[in-house]
């Protein structure tokens, strides 16, 4: 059943992500053509274009991540709590399967966006060697003698990969809490989102301060990244379990 649910999640959104992917690649191709065909006598033009492209790469990847969270949130709200919820919640499937299918589908799109971002950078650079250079640097970071660098790179990578998981768990839990109110469920979901965010920051600050006081100075940054990620994972798992329990036991569709 979970596989079937994921299939329909993907089918529901593939056109949106597909159009976005095509647009990003088209933009990269246009930018490359523009750079290659720039008149050589225009002083500094090439450098200016390169800088713009470099900035646009960062902007594209950042926008794609934001868009993923926004589209996943809209999809969850519409198919879970609005009209489509009348179908989803009457399917003979477990609530955890409904939630898991949305989370897994979001991760599939996350991977898709990472690939699109890689294609974007490849087109702008005009070659694929940056991937091997980047990979070598990355592997060197892990296997090199600099233990501090390798650990920092590893913790950063885990942190990036877990970002959608943390955000979506937080959002699902906020919607679940909003569902408990008899009126203004969407508004209350937003209020809950902000309240959880505030509470999470307070808890994280207190726990991390206490933990960091007990670690060695040269490992502080890595320890902080690891601890932050671990705490985020624990809280996200708690959010998901709580959201599942609320939707399973206290569902009240408007």
């Amino acid at each position: 059943m979970l596989r079937k649910l994921i299939k329909y999640e993907i089918l529901a959104d593939y056109k949106k992500y597909g159009i976005m992917g095509i647009a990003v690649i088209a933009l990269a191709v246009l930018a490359l053509i523009s750079e290659k065909t720039a008149p050589p006598y225009v002083n500094g033009y090439s450098n200016f274009i390169s800088a713009v492209f470099a900035m646009s790469s960062v902007f594209t990847i950042f926008s794609a991540s934001i868009l993923l969270i926004v589209l996943s949130t809209i999809r969850f709200y519409k198919s879970f709590l609005k009209d489509e919820g009348y179908l989803m919640h009457t399917l003979p499937v477990h609530t955890w399967q409904l939630i898991a299918s949305k989370l897994i589908a979001a991760y599939i799109w996350f991977l898709f966006l990472l690939i699109i971002s890689a294609v974007y950078v490849t087109i702008l650079k005009g070659n694929i060697t940056w991937i091997t250079d980047f990979s070598e640097d990355f592997i060197d970071g892990f296997t090199g003698e600099n233990d501090y660098l390798s650990q920092f790179m590893m913790s950063s990578l885990i942190s990036v990969l877990l970002t959608p998981f943390s955000y979506l768990a937080h959002i699902y839990f906020s919607f679940a809490l909003g569902n408990l109110f008899s009126k203004n469920k969407l508004t209350m979901s937003v209020v809950m989102f902000l309240a959880i965010n505030f509470a999470e920051r307070v808890i994280t600050s207190v726990l991390l301060s206490a933990y960091l006081a007990s670690v060695k100075d040269d490992m502080t940054l890595t320890a902080m990244t690891y601890s932050n990620t671990l705490l985020s994972v624990i809280l996200s798992v708690i959010y998901l379990i709580a959201a599942e329990r609320i939707f399973a036991k206290k569902l009240n569709l408007e």
């Binding site: 329909y8 489509e84 919820g85 009348y86 179908l87 009457t90």
Partner: peptide, 28 residues
């Protein structure tokens, strides 16, 4: 979950996703 297997429910609102074709709703 066991009662959902034997209950067929028609709500007063449209609950099908509008991106679907009729054939896709049958498949669903």
């Amino acid at each position: 979950i066991e009662t959902k297997k034997i209950v067929s429910y028609l709500p007063e609102r449209t609950y099908l996703s509008d991106w679907m074709t009729v054939q896709q709703t049958l498949n669903f």
